[in-house]
């Protein structure tokens, strides 16, 4: 889609972002040198096991990292404006207005004591110079748009009067309320019934496409990524280990971890065969091995893997962080 379009500035640009937790047993690095761009209208999927740092990346972009976590390096740019150093109030004006967020659990994302219409209108009023009546009209329009049946009567209902899927639609309406440039959707369907998941993803995709809104879609479900994303970033132990167009990463993953992940997607029409799985578990933050963090689980590890962290280099259509592609690593080093 918009990848490689140098004429157009990316909506979001993350450069070498690092994040650490200061605990009494030392400083733990939870995110390491994360870099990626999201172009206008693009859907970037972020996948990885839980604990890989997917959600943390999303939370860091929107500036909601709680203590003892803190950004320890890197930059975050939103449409040419740096936003990782603009302070509490500056960030607040960006949240909701220019970056919308959708959390995992629609059951707990809405304030149980406020009518859904009021919650949407509140968001609109916070960010836009409109009257209360206009805000309510906008709330009604949004509810209609996200497919709430009989929105005129549902606008004054309380969250508990909606089903899980309907609540997540309300949450999407809330995230879109102030027409943001980017939506960060953190596992938006994980808490929902399987039958509703596809509807919600389709809805999100349609609404963002018609608005030209970019999406950062965080999930551990490769199936969702395959259907929805334009590009995908694979995370492991706080680093991006592979990033590239979704078709290439799925068909020809370059990093052994990504290969393992792809092996875990059931392919339709394929002969019945066992899905592969990666043995072992991701290391804890305080026990990340030297060199490549994936080495202990990697079936193709070589001597060099224990020595240094491989850089992220272009390998074919994607970029990967693996010494197996050392030729490319060296070429890229000699080229620049």
């Amino acid at each position: 889609m918009a990848t490689g379009d140098t004429a157009m500035e990316p909506v979001l640009s993350v450069r070498n972002l690092s994040l650490e937790f200061v605990t009494r047993r030392g400083v733990l690095r939870a995110l390491n040198e994360i870099s990626f761009d999201i172009a206008r209208g693009e859907v970037l999927g972020v996948v990885g096991e839980s604990g890989a740092g997917k959600s943390l990346t999303g939370t860091a972009i929107i500036g909601l990292i709680d203590k003892p976590g803190r950004l320890s390096g890197g930059e975050i740019w939103l449409k040419g404006q740096r936003i990782d150093n603009i302070g509490h109030d500056g960030l607040r004006k960006i949240r909701g207005r220019r970056i919308g967020m959708i959390f995992q659990d629609p059951l707990t994302s809405l304030n149980p004591l406020f009518r859904v219409g009021d919650q949407i209108a509140e968001t609109v009023l916070t960010h836009m110079p409109v009257s209360k009546a206009e805000a309510r009209a906008r709330a009604l329009a949004l509810l209609t748009e996200v497919g709430i049946p009989a929105p005129e009567s549902r606008i004054d209902a309380y969250p508990h009067e909606f089903s899980g899927g309907m609540r997540q639609r309300v949450v999407i309406a809330l995230a879109l309320a102030a027409e943001p440039d980017l939506i960060i959707a953190d596992e938006p369907t994980t808490a929902l019934d399987v039958s509703v998941q596809a509807q919600i993803i389709t809805l999100l995709k349609r609404l963002c496409r018609t608005r030209g809104t970019s999406v950062m879609l965080i999930t551990h479900d490769m199936g969702v990524i395959a259907e929805t994303a334009d590009r995908v970033a694979v995370m492991y132990a706080g680093r991006i280990v592979e990033i590239g167009p979704v078709a290439d990463v799925i068909r020809q993953p370059k990093h052994p971890y990504a290969t393992g992940l792809m092996g875990a997607i059931p392919a339709l029409g394929a002969k019945v065969q066992r899905l592969t799985q990666i043995s072992g578990a991701m290391p804890r933050l305080n026990a990340i091995p030297a060199g490549c963090a994936f080495r202990p689980r990697c079936t193709e590890a070589i001597g060099k893997c224990a020595e240094a962290v491989p850089p992220l280099v272009p390998v074919g259509a994607t970029s990967a962080r693996c010494w197996l592609h050392e030729a490319q690593v060296e070429r890229s080093a000699s080229h620049g």
């Binding site: 937790f21 605990t23 009494r24 047993r25 733990l28 939870a30 839980s50 604990g51 890989a52 740092g53 997917k54 959600s55 943390l56 939370t59 804890r284 933050l285 305080n286 026990a287």
Partner: peptide
């Protein structure tokens, strides 16, 4: 949040 580190020693 699943990404929070556990302060326990490696066992």
């Amino acid at each position: 949040m699943a990404d929070m580190p556990s302060p326990a020693t490696p066992d």
